[in-house]
Amino acid sequence: MKENSGLKRTWLSFVVSFKEKMRNPILVSLILFLPAYFIFIAGRVMPEEEVFINHLGEMKEIGDVFQATFTPVTASLVTSIFGLYTVLEARDADKRLLISGYSSHELLLSRFGMIFAVGVLVSTFSLAIMMISFSPDNLPAFFMMVLLFSIIYGHIGVIIGTLMDKMAGVYTILLLITMDAGIFQSPIFLQEEPALWIRILPAYHPMNVVVETSFLDSIESIGHLALSLAVLFLVTILAVYIFWLRVKS
């Protein structure tokens, strides 16, 4: 009985927060429009040249590669900024909910549920826009990887939001995602075997799987997939722990 009411409260908190965000037309349009605009424009303006993809050992159209790799980047940017502000803006609300009888794990579920919901929304919309000019060979797996990317960075946003204020936090998120997912893991920019420090960044394994699902029917590097899930697991554990510590304090 008690468990049911706990679940109900968690669901209620999630629904109220979600409705509150979705009732803000500016926020909804930005969440959907900004990644879509980036992906759409990129699809239109890329030069008709080919680039060698180290991981696949073959040449691919630069526009296709850019869209395939920047769809998860844009989805991650939105989810991560959302994760950051989930922590920064919900501090007072969380305190009030705790006083009114919510437990810390109910709050955790509600807040992380919000990040997941935004991740699903942005990933779906970004993918739909990308498919106007590029279709990945393994669509379901590609979508799952875009979602995985956004959740990993959404949770990193939570970690950054707990440690920094908004200005340093937004800057760090943009720099981290742009440098890691956009530059270091991009087959367009990095044309040599990645150094060890690049291989331990969060986007390394997921980006390899993204490239495979974009241009191959099946996932051949099961190791990259397993390590992508491990990255998600580690980042989630860390974000949950840091958020839980903050709620407890």
Partner: peptide, 30 residues
């Protein structure tokens, strides 16, 4: 608002660095 403003600024800067800086030989008017 912080969240909405940050999103616009993040995307403006990111699009600008990849599409506007000239690292790719894209259409000049864009």
């Amino acid at each position: 608002h912080d969240l909405e403003g940050s999103l616009v600024m993040v995307f403006l800067a990111d699009m600008d660095v990849f599409l506007g800086s000239g690292v790719f030989e894209t259409e000049e008017w864009i």
